[in-house]
Amino acid sequence: MQSVSTLERILRGTAISLVIFFFMFPIFWIFLMSFQTNETILRVPPSMVFEPTLTNYRSLISGTLEGSTATLEIRFMSNLYNSLFLSVTSVTVGLLLGVPAAYAFAKLKFRGSEDIAFTLLSFRFAPPLLVLLPLTIYFQKIGLADTYLGLIWVYQLIVLPLILWIVRGYFEDIPSDIEYAHRIAGHGFWSTFTKIALPLAGPGIAAAGLLAFIFAWNNFIFALVLASADKQPVTVGALAFITASGINYGQIAAGIMLSIAPTFALALYAQRYLVEGLSLGAVKG
């Protein structure tokens, strides 16, 4: 028995290490790249030994890219700000719209509610380009192209279905008797929603909000098509490093490190809530 369990432990450890290596190595390699110049990055064979430099980060933060032939202005920091602004606002709007909608779908079964809920989810099935091509034309006509408002609106395609479906499950898990008890005790519908339903679905709402934030932050295609340079998030902004005079791998790597930092930190901080929120039921008596 002992030998089996030891073998099992070794196998399991190896498997986990392989998985971690597989997923983490690219990030680790990019981390190393972000401290190197293009010359050391493009060495053949590649090596982990190099003289670290902070020039990549310095040029990102100062906003000027020293190329071999010319000096290029880049807006990485404003891209980073755009990402933050777009994600936070989109998730806030998504929560404001999605949470009450989720409650309605969960608790007030009305005619066609299942169909509407499913239609909202189906936005996630459609390839984004399907929506984007007509949307680009419409947005240009009504003046929403290249505006924060337009982007936040389109971002709802990503965050709203996600929030709606996760939070709906949480509201459904709240026993109706608990809400009935609150009503019978003399509280109105709105008070029951805010004092009973919202706190009890709290972990689910937080988890949905975090996931939605990560999805919004990582979005690329909507912003690529609908936003010009000054509204672009980092995901699109990184394209600026592919210049006529060559590809600045070092800056791209540094840019990636900076842009994954917020979601990475958020995921690390909140992973306990995420796992708990997504796996546990809402109400434990």
């Binding site: 608990i178 008890a181 019978i184 003399g186 008596g285």
Partner: peptide, 16 residues
């Protein structure tokens, strides 16, 4: 809330 009723539920239904 306007009926002037008090109710005790079989499963207690306390606010957790």
């Amino acid at each position: 809330e306007d009926r002037g009723i008090g109710m005790a539920f079989q499963n207690f239904a306390l606010f957790p």
